[in-house]
Design a protein around this nucleic acid. Structure first.
Lengths: 138, 138
DNA sequence: GTAATTGCAAAAATTTTGCAGCATT
DNA sequence: AATGCTGCAAAATTTTTGCAATTAC
């Protein structure tokens, strides 16, 4: 059910976003269980974890190769499906040759200002919807 | 002095790593001050923040374009200086055209197993040195 | 009946912040 | 004197975990 709810979301929910969503169907579920299952799902590759520095980890049901961009103002995260994946392979090779790593995965994250925030919506949303103090910072 | 200490480190210290380092020279400095200054420094572009999901944010004194790779076992973070930066520009363009973002920055992060951990050193270091329980997880 | 999973609560870990005092100009 | 920074401590936030109870097989 956790997997279902993540899949149903277009966005990139945090653990507590997932908790809120699932709780509508399983009112007695606990946050600990959500965390434990997110861990299992991501270690099985059924979801992926995003760490883009908005304060919380995000989760993504779409696990095929694509990139992410986070709005520096409102913290929303969107997908980028690149027309060509060029370049990454050469970076991987560099990591293997130069640093001696066995590369297991990668992520390409961009930061910027989303269209919504560029056009006047200048409220600074620091955290996601699950936080208590949401719209703040001047 | 915080900036100096980050610059002196080859690695990618966390806030509390920085705190420990600076404390050797300013024994009375507080962790809050370290956080506040890391924030200032990074907002001025003098250092950069890394969010690679090892549990803590890392900081990097080297702010020119390069990529990072984190060892999934020991959590060390190394630099990758790609021979060519190919591909990123096209991803940026995609973000701007498709998602309508104004792109401010990007990061390319890889994950894998570092040489040290590949060759026998199989201790699982979950957190960095500043944590209390460092070597754990089975 | 055994093993796995859960809820609950507490702990742990990281980051932020209020405030009084110290420093700087 | 006014402003800004700091130390300290507490709070806020996110994530993990111990354990008894429940559920699944």
């Amino acid at each position: 059910m956790i997997l279902e709810e993540i899949g149903r979301t277009r966005g990139h929910p945090s653990a507590s976003d997932v908790y809120e969503k699932v709780r509508r169907r399983l009112p007695h579920i606990s946050l600990g269980t959500v965390y434990r299952n997110l861990e299992v799902l991501s270690s099985q590759g059924l979801i992926s974890r995003l760490d883009m520095g908005s304060g919380q980890r995000r989760f993504d049901a779409v696990t095929d190769d694509h990139h992410h961009i986070r709005c520096l103002v409102c913290n929303r995260v969107d997908d980028i499906r690149p027309s060509a994946n060029a370049g990454i392979d050469s970076i991987k090779r560099d990591a293997e040759k130069i640093a001696g790593y066995e590369v297991k995965g990668f992520s390409v994250d961009l930061y910027g200002i989303c269209p919504r925030c560029r056009s006047g919506n200048t409220e600074k949303v620091i955290r996601d919807d699950s936080r208590k103090n949401n719209i703040l910072r001047k």
